[in-house]
């Protein structure tokens, strides 16, 4: 068979020990040589996945990756939660430093593909942008929530690769809220609460994508001769109130100004991980258009919105290690 004789490509996945990284590694390791890079240990990993415990900011780490001669780099190892890492400045520093080093390496050893997981949140929800946003929309997310400004600058940095290294297939994926039983990110946590606070009088239309669909989307982006920025969205969209009703959750409406004030104080005193700027997601819709992804990447989400929500509430042991919640 043709696929057997073809040489297996080497994939480096940074941040492999995150839930999405693990799921991606399990998806890819049958067809690719997967090399994981993370500072955290990878428990119970399949034997054919190589794991390097490295800190990307160090020169030795970059040299180690260089020796592996990867064909594909999938960069998931970005700190998206500033609070977890004591002080925002440090997280920003870490993100930009490690990503720029990895980009330099990718250009030097001429990898075939460089995939970066950005986010559709960077477009920023606002009252004036209720339409379906395409990939050309400017990233205004940091105007309202300064916590994500480093993620915006990372996205911009990666866009520079399109002209700096035109032969390398750079892919920037901008998915909508990724939710799933194994994920512990803000949207999944928000929907898992028993009483879900909402902003009184506002009911935005939201989009979400199942973790499995997201993994499939990353895999679809590895196809040869494909580069660019892609919005990734799940099937359908629904008002937040109906999503909560479907989940059987009790919406707990709080007037906007009280909610914002309380959240600002709670965030300041380290009582919550939700940055106050994210509150706009409960107020305005931020819908993205994934027509380009459907056309070029030939990727459409398999899980319907109801399936995604059912999965979110009833966790199933997908990962070898039950993920800590």
């Amino acid at each position: 068979m043709a696929t057997r004789t073809k040489k297996r490509e080497k994939v480096v996945i940074t941040g492999i020990c995150g839930a999405l990284g693990k799921l991606l590694a399990l998806e890819l390791h049958k067809d690719f040589d997967v090399i994981g890079v993370d500072r955290r240990p990878f428990y119970d990993r399949p034997k054919d996945i190589k794991h390097l415990r490295l800190d990307l900011r160090r020169k030795s780490a970059i040299n180690t990756i260089k020796r592996e001669k990867p064909n594909i780099i999938i960069h998931l190892g970005v700190l998206r939660n500033p609070r977890k890492h004591k002080g925002k400045e440090k997280a920003i520093h870490l993100n930009i430093e490690s990503t720029s080093k990895l980009m330099a390496l990718a250009q030097k050893i001429k990898v075939r593909k460089f995939v970066f997981l950005s986010s559709a949140n960077l477009y920023g929800p606002s009252s004036t942008s209720s339409g379906f946003l395409t990939e050309d929309t400017p990233l205004h997310g940091a105007n309202r929530s300064p916590e994500i400004r480093d993620l915006v600058s990372l996205d911009m940095m990666l866009q520079g690769l399109f002209w700096k290294a035109p032969n390398m297939e750079t892919i920037i994926l901008r998915p909508v809220h990724i939710v799933g039983p194994d994920l512990n990110n803000a949207p999944s946590r928000y929907l898992r609460q028993p009483n879900v606070p909402t902003i009184m009088g506002f009911d935005p239309v939201i989009q979400m994508i199942h973790q499995d669909d997201m993994v499939r989307a990353i895999r679809a982006s590895l196809k040869p001769k494909l580069q660019g920025i892609y919005n990734v969205a799940g099937q359908g969209q629904a008002p937040l109130s109906r999503v909560l009703m479907f989940l059987g959750k009790r919406a707990f409406p709080v007037p906007g100004f009280i909610f914002r004030g309380a959240l600002q104080r709670a965030f300041k005193y380290n009582l919550t991980n939700y940055p106050p700027g994210e509150l706009d997601h409960l107020k305005y819709s931020c819908l993205v258009d994934d027509a380009r992804t459907k056309k070029d990447m030939k990727f459409t989400a398999e899980k319907s919105m109801t399936d995604t929500l059912i999965d979110l509430l009833e966790p199933y042991p997908l990962l070898p290690v039950p993920h800590k919640r």
Binding site: S127, T128, S130, I199, M200, G201, F202, D203, V205, P239, P255, G256, Y284
Partner: peptide, 20 residues
């Protein structure tokens, strides 16, 4: 555009098919 900033009104307009 400014009606999207008003609580309840924005949601009512949205559900009734009126858009910004």
């Amino acid at each position: 555009r400014w009606s999207a900033e008003l609580p309840f009104v924005s949601t009512l307009f949205n559900r009734a098919g009126q858009f910004v």
